[in-house]
Design a protein around this nucleic acid. Structure first.
Lengths: 355, 355
DNA sequence: CTCCTCTGGGAAAACGCTTTCAGAAAGCGC
DNA sequence: GCGCTTTCTGAAAGCGTTTTCCCAGAGGAG
């Protein structure tokens, strides 16, 4: 019967070698070009390989040579434009260096993150890239560090983007504080005095940094942010939407709102629109990140622009750069305040009014 | 000196086995749970493995067991929100099934696509997922098919999303024609009679399908689309932008524009804004796909909504579904016309006027 | 012509696991 | 007590490469 496949599933190197009339060893050397092989033999092997459609088994190669050209990329959710943009940069750089990227989305579950690190360790990935804010939960971060530490010792490379430095690894860090501070100043310069912040989960380091920076910037203008002016929400469009609604419900009357993330700002914009609050006439809105589509919004969103694609390219370069000295390297990338139409001077110039 | 690492880099299974006082075989069985192992031995092995921080070598496992739980995902560019959304769905499904996803971005170069298929073959990926329109270039498609065919014969699974059926593989196909036709009808119903299309590269099948569908829909209303009313551009925001400018330059005065892709529509919207053309007052604009942010635009974009995340989940399910009968399966997903504020009745009701 | 150094090729030993194949131990009916 | 299953365990044979290690032969020097 045709039950049992008579043809072996994959062409292996020794078939190629036999066909070319050389030994297995020579065939391997001919194809990899590590050692000199007589030119005619090399050609015979190549011809046989092509003829037979030989595809080397990457697992066998990795096992035998203990080498590997895959890197792991762990982010919260590739579907999110922020991560997608960074991932795009990583892919670009990976393609140039013939690296294969194993992608992992944690969907914001710390346990999944750790599990993925473990999986990538098992895959003997050359590098593990962690994109995005870590979890403030001490226990998880420790567990992660414990998982990463033996990997590093075994020669693995780890680099992070936008993640707090609890881990001693190379990092691409946006200037969250400075960027938020600069934004605050720009908003002050527009004449705003009454601010509110749509903040993300307070356990994310990115959030605390941006919040702190924003406060610093405001402080330069003598403004402080009352606790009733900070609303926390999830790091998503819906989170921003809900936070904005909550803010409106409190009706403390800020003239300017800073959403710590563009994605949240998008949700906030929708919430404002639904509530009949006009941006920027009634309220100014600013975000952070400059993800691809926010400049297309109406009004286009004022934000702090981060070079997301470049950050993706940098993080992989950083991870793979050879002289991994004793100390970890940090590449700080500046955020540039981009004033767009979502921010404008406040409607009523509040000259020296005390709330 | 401390030159040579005295500690072996990785803990291997036989170290674990020795530590637990059992044989290599038993240790393997204890950890994998394939065969019954006496409970106390199993516990000893587990304890030893945990103590030593044992991480199995996935390559060795794959080699020895000829199994593998990785799938490859090939798309044009993960940075593009369209692909990002689908990839997000794939990741979700993959996480649930403990599959590791190897991601590849072709950056729209056919050669790279084929190279990636080859790489994924070498990795012995369980499945290869191709997302996005194929290349019309016959030679490339043939080369791709030639690369895929032995993979399929070797038991590999291939599934595509939104890719023309030159390949005999499982597919998730959006109803491009029907969706575009429905959109055309909806636009006709608004009262439009003068249309234009911002089309993508004519060699992409998605483009031709949507264009044909749109024409069909218009034909129902007795409208035909002159060649001067179709502008081709790249499948990107910039492509849409350029195409829209070109259209305006031709000044043939359509009241309604259909961009075959939301991403292009976004570019068009920007171009219109720059040119002082108001949407929808001066011109109505519609897209296709319903990528995440277009509902947030002002005006929110009328489009044909595709369940992108679900499509990603479906394609991986399709690829892995067991009874791969002789014929390939096709999952058609409908596009739903979503009328938003970017379309409105034309300013001047053109009652029966002939251009 | 012999000895020595190179070059290049083949045999075989890893690489770290899974899995087959027996064999030992234990339980059971008679 | 004896044979017969049943369970488990261990030895060893792969899986498909790379990479020693070693040897044959070629070429040069003396």
């Amino acid at each position: 019967m045709s039950e049992r496949p008579s043809t072996p599933v994959h062409v292996t190197l020794d078939v190629v070698a036999r066909r070319a009339g050389v030994s297995l060893a020579t065939a391997s050397r001919a194809l990899n070009g590590t050692t000199r092989v007589r030119e005619d033999l090399r050609r015979r092997v190549r011809a046989a390989a092509d003829l037979l459609g030989y595809i080397p088994n990457a697992h066998a190669q990795a096992l035998a040579s203990a080498s590997n050209n895959t890197v792991g990329l762990i982010c919260h959710d590739v579907g999110d434009p922020y991560f997608a943009a960074i991932a795009g940069g990583v892919m670009r750089a990976a393609a140039e260096q013939d690296l294969l990227v194993m992608l992992a989305s944690t969907f914001r579950e710390p346990a999944r993150e750790i599990a993925y690190v473990s999986t990538l360790r098992a895959q003997r990935a050359r590098a593990i890239l962690l994109i995005g804010s870590g979890f403030q939960d001490r226990a998880w971060e420790r567990a992660l560090a414990a998982e990463l530490e033996p990997y590093l010792r075994a020669g693995g490379r780890v680099a992070v983007v936008s993640r707090h430095r609890t881990l001693r690894v190379d990092a691409v860090l946006p200037e969250n504080r400075a960027g938020a501070a600069a934004l605050a100043q720009a908003l002050l310069a527009l004449g705003h005095r009454e601010f509110a912040v749509l903040s993300g989960p307070p356990e994310l380091t990115t959030v605390t940094d941006r919040l702190a920076g924003f406060r610093e910037g405001l402080a330069q203008g003598g403004i402080t942010l009352g606790p009733d002016r900070v609303v926390h929400g999830a790091f998503t469009r819906e989170g921003g939407h809900a936070a904005a609604r909550e803010l409106l419900a409190r009706s403390t009357g800020p003239t300017c709102v800073f959403a710590v993330t563009d994605v949240m700002a998008v949700g906030a914009l929708a919430a404002f629109r639904e509530a009949g609050v006009q941006v920027p006439q009634d309220i100014s809105l600013a975000g952070f990140d400059d993800i691809p589509l926010v400049r297309e919004l109406t009004p286009p969103l004022t934000t702090v622009a981060l070079p997301l694609t470049a950050m993706g390219q940098e993080v992989i370069a950083l991870a793979l750069r050879e002289p991994r000295g004793p100390r970890s390297r940090v590449l700080r990338v500046g955020g540039e305040v981009v004033l767009r139409a979502s921010t404008a001077p406040p409607a009523t110039p509040l000259t020296g009014r005390t709330s």
